[in-house]
C-alpha cells in the first residue's frame, strides 16, 4: 500500500509539471471502459465477501459459486483492459508517446498483473472448496486470498480517479 501511495504521488508530481499534456492525453482514455471496470471489480469484491461469509457456515457449494462469479468478473476485467490497450495502440498511443501514457501503461499494467495473480489465487481457492471436508485453515486461506482481491479492487478505485477522472 505504501509503494502504491508513492506511485500515486509520483504521478501527480509529474502531472503538475506539465498539466496540459496530461489533460489532452487523458481525454483519449475510454472512460466508459474505466467506469465499467470499476463496477466489475467492486461487484467481484462483493462476491468474494459473500464467499468468505458462506465458507464460515460450511456451505461449500454456495462458497464456490460465489468464487466462480468473482473469477468470471475478474476475467471480464482483463478482457476489457485488453480492448482498452488495443484501442490506445490503434490510436497510436504507446508507452513512449508521452509521460501520461508511460504512467498509464506502467501503473495499470502493474495493477493488471495483480489482477491476474488474484485470479490465480481465487481459482486455487475455488478448487479447494470443491472438497467435502473443509477445515478452518481453508476458511482462513479464503479470508486472506479475499483480502488480496479487495486490495486489487482498492488500488483500481484510486487509479480510476487519478487517470480517468481528475482533471
Amino acid at each position: 500500500m505504501i509503494i502504491f501511495a508513492i506511485f500515486f504521488a509520483t504521478y501527480l508530481f509529474y502531472r503538475i509539471q506539465n498539466q496540459e499534456i496530461y489533460q489532452i492525453s487523458q481525454a483519449y482514455l475510454n472512460k466508459v471502459i474505466g467506469l465499467s471496470n470499476t463496477f466489475i471489480l467492486l461487484t467481484s469484491s462483493l462476491f468474494v465477501v459473500v464467499a468468505v461469509q458462506l465458507s464460515r457456515t460450511g456451505n461449500n457449494i454456495a462458497t464456490r459459486i460465489n468464487l466462480l462469479a468473482a473469477i468470471t468478473l475478474g476475467v471480464i476485467f482483463c478482457f476489457l483492459k485488453y480492448f482498452e490497450y488495443r484501442e490506445k495502440f490503434d490510436q497510436g498511443f504507446t508507452l513512449v508517446s508521452n509521460d501520461f501514457f508511460m504512467f498509464y501503461y506502467v501503473f495499470t499494467g502493474i495493477h493488471l498483473l495483480h489482477v491476474v495473480i488474484g485470479l490465480g489465487v481465487l481459482i486455487f481457492l475455488s478448487q479447494r472448496f470443491r472438497r467435502k471436508q473443509i477445515n478452518n485453515a481453508d476458511v482462513d486461506m479464503l479470508t486472506s486470498g479475499g483480502a488480496f482481491w479487495h486490495l486489487v479492487d482498492l488500488l483500481w478505485v484510486i487509479l480510476f480517479a487519478l487517470f480517468y477522472l481528475v482533471g
Binding site: 465477501v49 479475499g146 479487495h150 479492487d153 482498492l154
Partner: peptide, 10 residues
Amino acid sequence: KTRFILLEFM
C-alpha cells in the same frame, strides 16, 4: 470508497 473497502470488505 477505499475506507469502506478496507473496513467492511477486508
